[in-house]
Design a protein around this nucleic acid. Structure first.
Length: 566
RNA sequence: UGGGGCGUGGCCAAGCGGUAAGGCGCCGGAUUUUGGUUCCGGUAUUCGAAGGUUCGAACCCUUCCGCCCCAGCCA
């Protein structure tokens, strides 16, 4: 109501601009239909999330629909394991295809009919050249190809041979159906591309019903047409295929003609987003599986503790354009922190425990202190945290000889234990090796809750856990899987495997957690105060909780310390 | 050497002839019982380069430079 004249409508990305114009112009009667078309040959990753958010997002914004369609035309590489995982991941991300779940394989009969039409019209022919010969005949990027000797077979012979290909009369590789376009085209995709190949392999859905399978370009174009897709969005590498896409739609005479629009795929720093490369990480055991919390797969991110909302926010913020770009992972990390800061209950947990004995605290006495569950959300309430004579604090929160800006615990220094008391370090106990094993401190009984009655200032506030009440838990501290911003930027003779971060996982067998988290179910998220966000891993058992660190909190001290040590 | 794209701050990204949005990061400062959050301020006289058109250009024209993709019976 109080819009300033200077307020500008949020700028649309180039695809939404096109869609908005089409809708405004009444193209397709103002209808918007998109699709997300994964091949079930691997797990979905964050790059796919960009496409999912785009396709489902645009459909939602313009009152349209988005279909989930499996591009399952290569039975040799595909499997139901992947289709199930993909469906779960898309749903988890927060999108719904209602009853519009499709498979290109459901169209095989219709696609076959399209191919027959092409043959009848003299637009396709069966080629008996071998794969190697076809490659030789194709020419190179700079030299035109030459026509196959079989290019002028009669329509009757083509029809007959294609029928026999389908009937399984020929062995794999003996012949293919090719589009008859232009062997001299500067666009190699137009040099009589293969439409169908023989592949006597059982398909995960059609079984051994077919011995020939249509190729992607042909399948995708006509499938989009069958589903009346108005805007077929794909990544840049298919830009060169667009003429073939249009050719397929035009020459088969399908009733609807979708428009293909290409956008730049997502690249993330310190990350690899290539199904092939991810598959290798799994196969060679560099990670525990597709859902290893270090993997950029949706299942990995889920296990790591990323929320669907944070991924959607991330996808909305990185924008959409045609230029190759490398998005900083910090952007992703920011998105989860933002979401989790608002909703994750806070809890105290000591990762690297250092024993602290309060010398003036009565032995055997236990105090129940009130702690706020989430300062960002008052409705989250408070909880009781037990306090006693022996505690654990973080090793990194004590320094015997601290630098200027360190305002945590040190000999003779006073700090606050969060929600508890102010304590002063009186003595440092070391073992024979000189290693600090325990701190002797005194507490000020007048400061219960953490507020000194005399108003004296205390610089540091530490998290802590009562030793006798502490839960012993396993914590997996994850860091980026690769230590190089662009994992593929390696020296001659090496590949991205050489960029693997040897410290991407630090296992803590016995971290100490406050008792309130006992019995937390897998998938439960917390913020361990002053440290980061954690989620209970499915590996957790009744007797031992297991946590994955989703992301650490921003750490100003770490930056100062790093600066100081340079 | 053929074809198709792309070049705006450290990283993304708006802008579409009227004098550089926003986010991330970074640097300050304020508030703070998380060195978190929040808040406030700073961070491109310049849009790959050079010419040209124009009163006026990141936006139009020319040339040049750089980067990405394509020669699967993969998608």
């Amino acid at each position: 109501m109080s819009e300033e004249p200077s307020d500008k409508a949020p700028s649309l990305d180039f695809i939404r601009t096109i869609v908005a114009e089409d809708v405004a112009n009444g193209k397709n009667d103002g209808r918007v239909a998109t699709r997300f078309p994964p091949e079930p040959n691997g797990y979905l990753h964050i790059g796919h999330a960009k496409s999912i958010c785009l396709n489902f997002g645009i459909a939602a914004e313009y009152g349209g629909t988005c279909n989930l369609r499996f591009d399952d035309t290569n039975p040799a590489k595909e499997d139901v394991e992947y289709v199930d995982a993909i469906k779960e991941d898309v749903r988890w991300l927060g999108f719904d295809w209602d009853d519009r779940l499709y498979y290109a394989s459901d169209y095989f009969e219709k696609i076959y009919a399209c191919a027959v039409k092409l043959i009848r019209d003299g637009n396709a022919y069966v080629d008996s050249l071998s794969a190697e010969e076809i490659r030789e005949y194709r020419g190179t990027l700079t030299e035109p190809g030459k026509n196959s000797p079989h290019r002028e077979r009669s329509v009757e012979e083509n029809l007959d041979m294609f029928k026999r290909m389908r009937a399984g009369e020929f062995a794999d590789g003996t012949c293919v159906l090719r589009a008859k376009i232009d062997m001299a085209s500067g666009n190699v995709n137009l040099r009589d591309p293969t439409l169908y190949r023989i592949r006597k392999v059982a398909h995960h859905r059609t079984g051994d019903q077919w011995s020939i399978y249509p190729m992607y370009d042909f399948t995708h174009a006509v499938s989009d047409a069958f589903e009346n897709i108005t805007h077929s969005l794909c990544t840049l590498e298919f830009e060169d295929h667009r003429p073939l896409y249009n050719w397929s739609v035009n020459e088969t005479g399908v009733a609807f003609k979708p428009r293909q629009i290409e956008f730049a795929r997502l690249n993330l720093s310190y990350t690899i987003l290539s199904k092939r490369k991810l598959l290798r990480l799994v196969h060679e055991g560099h990670v525990s599986g597709w859902n290893d919390p270090r993997m950029p797969t949706l299942s990995g991110l889920r296990r790591r503790g990323y929320t669907p909302k944070s991924l959607r926010t991330f996808c909305a913020r990185i924008g959409l354009a045609k230029r190759d770009s490398l998005v900083d992972v910090a952007q992703l990390e920011h998105a989860v922190r933002e979401d989790l800061n608002a909703r994750a209950p806070r809890v105290m947990g000591v990762l690297h425990p250092l024993r602290v004995v309060l010398e003036n605290y009565p032995e055997g006495e236990v105090d129940e202190l009130d702690a706020v569950n989430n300062p960002e959300d008052e409705s989250a309430g408070t909880r009781k945290v037990p306090f006693s004579r022996v505690l654990y604090i973080e090793r990194a929160d004590f320094m015997e000889d601290p630098p200027k800006k360190f305002f945590r615990l040190a000999p003779g220094r006073e700090v606050r234990l969060r929600y508890a008391y102010l304590i002063t370090c009186t003595d440092v106990v070391k073992d024979d090796a000189g290693e600090i094993v325990e701190l002797r401190c005194t507490y000020d009984p007048e400061t219960r809750g953490g507020t000194p009655p005399d108003g004296r200032r205390v610089r540091g506030t530490l998290h802590w856990v009562s030793a006798e009440h502490a839960l012993d838990v396993e914590v997996r501290l994850y860091d980026r899987l690769f230590s190089r911003e662009k994992p593929d930027d390696v020296e001659e003779g090496q590949d991205y495997i050489a960029s693997l971060n040897p410290n991407s996982l630090e296992l803590l067998e016995s971290a100490k957690l406050e008792p309130s988290v006992a019995g937390a179910a897998p998938g439960t998220r917390y913020q361990f105060e002053r440290q980061g966000y954690f989620i209970v891993d499915p590996d957790a058992s009744a007797d031992k909780l297991v946590f994955n660190r989703t992301v650490s909190l921003k750490d100003a001290w770490a930056r100062i310390a790093a600066r100081g040590s340079q």
